[in-house]
Each structure stands twice: as C-alpha cells, then as structure tokens.
C-alpha cells in the first residue's frame, strides 16, 4: 500500500506533465549542444551579417575584431551579464538583456529590438557562462532569430584591446 501510493503520486504527476506539455500554446525545443559557427566569424572583412529569419538560434562567433566590425556596420550588441557587471563596463552601445529578464515574461527590451534583420550579437562572461546562449534561445521564442553568440564573451572583447563603455 505504501509503495503503491508513492507510485500513484509519481504516475499522476507524469500524466499531468504529459498533458501540460501538449497543451501549452507554443511548443518549444531545447537546442542541442551542437553549435553552428557563424560564417563571418573568421572573416574580419565580412559585411554586416543579416541571418535568414529561419536560421537556428545556435550560431556562434569567436573573433572579437569580427564582432567589432559588425557593430561598426550596424549590428547590435546584447549584454546578457548581470546589471552590476554591465554598469561597470560593457561593449559600447550594447543593450542590457540578462536571462533573468525572461523569467517574468516578455522583457520590455525585446520590443525595442530591431525587426529589420539586423544582426544581434549576444555576449556574457565567456568560458562556462551560458547566459548568452539562454538569451539567444529565449529570443528565438519571440521570433528573433538573427542572433549570434560571441563565445569569448566580454573578457574576449577586453583581451582584444577594444574600447569599452561604462554606466547603465
């Protein structure tokens, strides 16, 4: 009887979970760990990239100078780090959009992102930091797919000796 009741609790939970997963209005998928390299990542002379709107939200880039060139050409930088770190220092002109902003629904900042195919380059702290990938996935849910994650993060930007901006 004791184990049977435990099993019933687990089975009922599983049934509710199954129903819920099918009943949600917008189905979603979690990106696999396979990342797609951005074509412009290793080409510093590449023009401003405009990814197709149906591109998977897993594109990544590693070259800070490519990042800088894209910004000069009109791309938008999105900083997914904490507010403290953003205030301390960030990529010039970057928009602050941390992952936690998505836990309360659709962040207001999403409404201010361009919808003309402008490339958006998301970064966080590099290394094990995955906030930028999370923000990329969340943006994809809102139909914003023209994004690239700068894998080296803000440390990579600084290491390249590129200018920074302070304040919020």
């Amino acid at each position: 009887m004791w184990l049977k009741r435990c099993a019933i609790i687990l089975v009922v939970s599983a049934a509710l979970a199954a129903v819920d997963s099918f009943a949600r209005p917008s189905a979603w998928t979690v990106n696999s760990s396979t990342k797609k390299e951005s074509k412009g990542a290793d080409n510093t002379a590449a023009p401003v990239a405009k990814l197709p709107t149906d591109a998977p939200a897993t594109a990544t880039a590693h070259d800070a100078n490519w990042f800088s060139d894209q910004l000069a050409g009109g791309a938008l930088a999105i900083d997914a780090r904490t507010a403290e770190k953003f205030s301390e220092s960030h990529v010039p002109g970057a928009i602050h959009l941390p992952f936690e902003a998505f836990t309360k629904g659709r962040p207001d900042a999403v409404d201010f992102l361009p919808d003309d195919g402008t490339l958006m380059i998301i970064y966080c702290d590099g290394g094990d930091c995955d906030a930028s990938h999370k923000v990329q996935t969340m943006l994809e849910q809102f139909g914003i797919k023209n994004t690239v994650v700068f894998e080296e993060g803000f440390p990579g930007w600084q290491k390249a000796g590129l200018p920074v901006e302070t304040g919020s």
Partner: peptide, 28 residues
C-alpha cells in the same frame, strides 16, 4: 508560456541530463 523554457534552460546548464531528457524533466 516562458516559464517551462526558462526552467529547461536552467536544467540544461546543469549539464547533468542528456538533451533528449530535458523537456521530459522540465514538465515532470
């Protein structure tokens, strides 16, 4: 609409589950 995905991304960042299991655990 967002909440399950937010949790799924947290689960994924723990790097303990295969990707195929993340959606299952996310709801269960």
């Amino acid at each position: 609409a967002n909440a399950p995905l937010v949790f799924a991304l947290s689960l994924q960042s723990f790097k303990l589950l295969p990707d195929a299991l993340v959606p299952v655990v996310t709801y269960f």
